[in-house]
């Protein structure tokens, strides 16, 4: 059982660290918010592993859910909402958000 916990913690830790680096270097801001949310979700699983189920519940609901919701909505207000990395094919969302900026 302890061996299993060790492997789970190792995989989660590597996932969280690489996702944290990704959140700071990736160009698309929405992808960065998603990577930060992955860090929060891995943290919730680690809390459950460390026998803190109440903290894990709160982290999953507030840290991974509400926080990324706030950041994503703020991206719309900041005009950085962009689904595609390539700016050649301007999709509907970026076009509409661009129109909202001008207004």
């Amino acid at each position: 059982m302890s061996e299993v916990e060790l492997w789970i913690a190792l995989i989660l830790g590597i996932m969280m660290l690489s996702s944290a680096v990704l959140a700071l270097v990736v160009k698309n801001h929405l992808a960065a918010v998603a990577a930060a949310s992955v860090v929060s979700l891995g943290l919730a699983l680690l809390f459950a592993l460390m026998r803190a189920p109440d903290v894990a519940m709160t982290e999953a609901a507030v840290g991974a859910g509400l926080s990324s919701l706030i950041l994503a909505l703020a991206l719309r207000r900041l005009g950085l909402w962009q689904i595609d990395s390539g700016s050649e094919n301007s999709n509907l969302l970026s076009a509409s958000s661009k129109g909202k900026d001008d207004a």
């Binding site: 959140a23 700071l24 918010v33 930060a36 860090v39 950041l71 900041l78 950085l80």
Partner: peptide
Amino acid sequence: FRMVLALVIAEA
């Protein structure tokens, strides 16, 4: 905006 994200990660 990246600064805010980095703050979130450090807090985690």
